[in-house]
Amino acid sequence: MPPKGRIKVTEIYCKGCELCVSACPQNVLGLANDHITVKGYHPATLIAEGCTGCGICSIVCPEAAITVYREKTVTNRIPV
């Protein structure tokens, strides 16, 4: 099972440049064509299942707009 992840795009920063879309190894990123940000861009968003939380999108993002999370597998969960 590949790891499961998710991203949060902070829309005030995102300018829809698509560098993350083109860099995503899982091809699960796209632009949200249904709405625009306050600056008038279609922001990046997950458009399909399959994000692994690899963080590549955050590495290429020029706006530090993407926060990346990865689900802990049962084995790497630290008991709280």
């Binding site: 939380g53 690899c54 963080g55 707009a65 926060t67 990346v68 999370y69 990865r70 689900e71 709280v80």
Partner: peptide
């Protein structure tokens, strides 16, 4: 996020 089930991979510095 739920620190028990998720790891923070990247956030704005």
């Amino acid at each position: 996020y739920d620190v028990e089930t998720e790891t923070l991979v990247y956030e704005r510095p």
